[in-house]
Design a protein around this nucleic acid. Sequence first.
DNA 1: AGTTAAAAACAGACCGGTTGGTATGGTGGA
DNA 2: TCCACCATACCAACCGGTCTGTTTTTAACT
Lengths: 183, 183
Amino acid sequence: MDTKSLIIDVATNLFQQKGYKGVGLNEIIKACNISKGSLYHHFPNGKEELLIACLQLLNEEITKDIVEIFERYPTTREAAEAMISKLVENFEAEGTLTGYTFSSIVSEMASLSEPVRNACAQLYQKIQAIYMEKLLADGFTKDKANAIALMMTASIEGAMLLCLTQKEAEPLKIISQLLPKML
Amino acid sequence: MDTKSLIIDVATNLFQQKGYKGVGLNEIIKACNISKGSLYHHFPNGKEELLIACLQLLNEEITKDIVEIFERYPTTREAAEAMISKLVENFEAEGTLTGYTFSSIVSEMASLSEPVRNACAQLYQKIQAIYMEKLLADGFTKDKANAIALMMTASIEGAMLLCLTQKEAEPLKIISQLLPKML
DNA sequence: AGTTAAAAACAGACCGGTTGGTATGGTGGA
DNA sequence: TCCACCATACCAACCGGTCTGTTTTTAACT
């Protein structure tokens, strides 16, 4: 893997675990076994540029993952259940939700940096769009589909937060059980 | 107001806006017009002790606010709608949700500090308990009430995140419209 | 009530360490 | 020869935290 991709990969993980301010450049370059010069060669505008690159990678990865699941199952209900159970598995195995959430970055940076806020907004938008497409295929009206897609995004994101604080996967499981009621 | 309360008050605001790592002690003491010695007199164990004190204050304030609303309205549905519309008003007036959320602290610190994680877990628990009590009064079974209370907590918290990233109050509004469906 | 000593509250200089960021120089391949 | 790529040394600014010393409040005793 080329150096730039390596940096993005490692930094994405660290940012998700510890938040933006919680990770120093020194920590990143040590984890990558590279030098500071190398990092600033690939990201001349420094840490924030790197963060945005990470958010873009995350965007692609999360989107790809969700799209795949939503293509495999016939209805929104089944797809959502499969998606959440995958989240639960991941959480119970690793104790984190790395790769699926970026709430720490949102709440840290949304009010501090417009570019970062925008990148996060796009990511949520993309996820929501996937849900919505499936909901439309299920026969919902545009308005209904939009509202339900938003509800799904919000409740899943919120449930992730609850799982992290409680160190239990139950919140996600309960959300999964309750989702059909909205459909 | 005594110095200690002042510190907690100012720090709570700053932490909510910029996250834990995003606020330095120097920024806090400057905003309070006090000295470092004074801060460490009241919080000898430093920044983390201060944060936990802030979370406890937040706990009381949020709880008090929610309880008041839930006492004023006869059903969970009406109370929840009133509560969310208050959030919306606050967000549209000030552009922030200070005083109502602490997701930045959760996602930043949950994996780094057990005491902080615990304080956050307690806060969520308390909020959920208020919802649940009302739901039981509405006639739901214990299991149903528990599940719905969790769903409410998660979706509202998630909607706040979405509002912050989008700079719009719509997510909260839509959640409010959709909540009756679950009841 | 007046004196005094202890304790609480506060001030600010200072510490080692780390932060994000820069400047310069080397190296290998085209 | 040139340039992308990387390494190193270095910087000012800031971090959380400690230190010593001063002011202010409290309480006890005569």
